[in-house]
Amino acid sequence: MKASVIVFPGSNCDRDIQVALANSMGGPVDMVWHGETEMAKTDLIVLPGGFSYGDYLRCGAMSARSPVMREVVARAEQGVAVLGICNGFQILLEAGLLPGALLLNAGRNFVCRDVNIRVENSQTPFTNGYEQGQVLRIPVAHHDGQYFADPDTLVELRAADRIAFRYCGVGGDEDGAAGPRDNPNGSIDDIAGIFNDRKTVLGLMPHPERAADPVHGGTDGRGLLASLVSALA
């Protein structure tokens, strides 16, 4: 398996996901500068977290128009797996690879804490290592993570099992909506991550790479990377 992490000016989780992926894959990960117009053959493209272009104008807006993104969009259309984490999720939305938008957190402040998310679809290359309904504890750290989509899009996301993760309480609260503190940003329908229709593109706000090593205090994020390794190897 070959994996590539795109580095935008202002990316700051590029090294973190590189280390976590390399540990899961047992091999090196390519780092690709945003100004590149070509990319070597790869099985997985990661858009990392950070504040690309300072989050100026809108989060992810300028990165989504950087040279390398034309290539990322083309590869995504060919079915190459694309993972966008936090700022990477914002870039995927701005680039039109996923529907909806991410708005300022409902609480208006940056929020960094561990949250619980429930696996809503375990039949994908990103989630095959998890059980359906499994609750994961993974940190979020963002200022603009409130997922928004119009009602038609939401209907489509639900119908096609494109909601990857939902914020939830410790017990998973399968029977109802997450409590006010469980949904850290006011996302509509408690959505923490979504797929494209083919389930080859995933965008999520929580940071699996920050729950991938025992020193982090939890390793629930490893499963996502392990899923990719087993699906793409």
Partner: peptide, 9 residues
């Protein structure tokens, strides 16, 4: 359309 506004929102 291309950059300044996100017409989704």
């Amino acid at each position: 359309e291309k950059l300044l506004a996100n017409t989704v929102i």
